[in-house]
Simulated assay, not measured.
Amino acid sequence: MALGENTKAYETPNHPFQGERISEEASLLDRYGLKNKEELWRAQSELRDYRREARNILAQRAQGDAEETEAEGEEFVSRLKRIGVLNDGDSLDDVLLLDVTDVLERRLQTVAYRNGIGNTPQQARQFVTHGHVTVDGRRVQAPSAKIDVAEQDTVQFAENSPLADELHPERAEGNE
């Protein structure tokens, strides 16, 4: 078995039965149309990884490895800006202030909903999984796919999809 082949891409909560956390997770699941809590936990793990990397870079910078860590920090921040987790004016310190919603907003399902492809996040998810949505001309069927800021405006219905017809009854109101 290869190294890392049997590892999870997320961590479950340490205390499974906390009412406040459960209701907060349920609210996020509903707001972003997630299939299950595993998808939320994956986003939380991704956010943890971003924060961990930022803390490591900041710690190396404090120890005196200025030149090398400065370049590494700039590369890391530019990567987060490209995928849209950080805004243009943000810096490495702002990574520590991120919330899980910043990661969830970059999923194809959410971007499609925000672009008016579905009436609800759940409907946008269905359109994505059924192959009705393209990103930059290529069909993507994974609702969890991360969408770069540059690709955000290219999310649309596939040309050969029945939903590409503006008069289709399932089209979102006011969508071109």
Rank of each mutant, 00 (worst) to 15 (best):
Q152R: 15
Q18I: 06
P162R: 09
D94K: 06
N6L: 09
A150Q: 12
F127K: 15
L167H: 14
Q63R: 11
R106P: 00
D153P: 01
R106I: 06
P121H: 09
A66H: 15
Q109E: 13
F127E: 12
Y50G: 02
G84T: 07
R21H: 12
E105V: 03
E68G: 03
Q141K: 11
H132W: 04
E105R: 13
G116P: 03
D49F: 00
R42L: 00
R79N: 14
T12P: 02
D93E: 15
L104E: 07
V85L: 04
L98H: 07
E70G: 05
I57M: 00
R61D: 13
V140M: 11
G84P: 07
L97C: 00
T110E: 03
G131M: 07
R79A: 13
S144Y: 03
G33M: 09
E11M: 09
Y10H: 14
T7W: 04
G137E: 14
K146P: 02
Q122F: 07
D99P: 02
A2H: 05
I22P: 01
N119K: 15
S144M: 07
E74D: 13
G73D: 02
H15Q: 08
I83E: 14
Q123L: 14
A158H: 06
L167G: 12
Y10L: 05
V95F: 01
G137L: 07
L58W: 05
L92H: 00
Q152V: 02
V100M: 08
A164L: 01
R42I: 08
R106M: 03
S144W: 04
P169L: 04
V85S: 02
L98D: 10
A59C: 00
G33W: 05
R48N: 14
T134F: 04
S144H: 03
E75G: 10
E72H: 11
R79H: 13
E151L: 12
K8T: 09
L86M: 08
Y32K: 08
V128Q: 07
K35L: 12
L29C: 13
G131W: 09
E176D: 09
D88Y: 00
T154A: 08
G19C: 03
R107S: 08
S91R: 05
E173P: 01
V103R: 10
E166P: 09
G19E: 15
E39V: 11
N175D: 05
E105S: 15
E159K: 14
A71D: 13
T12R: 12
L167A: 10
R55V: 04
L104K: 11
L96P: 09
E20I: 04
E173R: 05
V149K: 06
E176G: 12
L92F: 01
D136H: 10
D90C: 05
P16W: 02
N87T: 06
L3I: 12
G118I: 07
L108M: 07
R48M: 03
A150H: 06
A145G: 07
E170P: 03
D165I: 02
T101Y: 02
A172R: 15
G116V: 02
E68V: 08
E20Y: 04
D90M: 13
A164N: 15
E38R: 15
S91T: 15
D90G: 01
L47Y: 02
S45M: 08
K8L: 15
G118V: 05
K35A: 14
S144V: 01
E25D: 13
K146V: 13
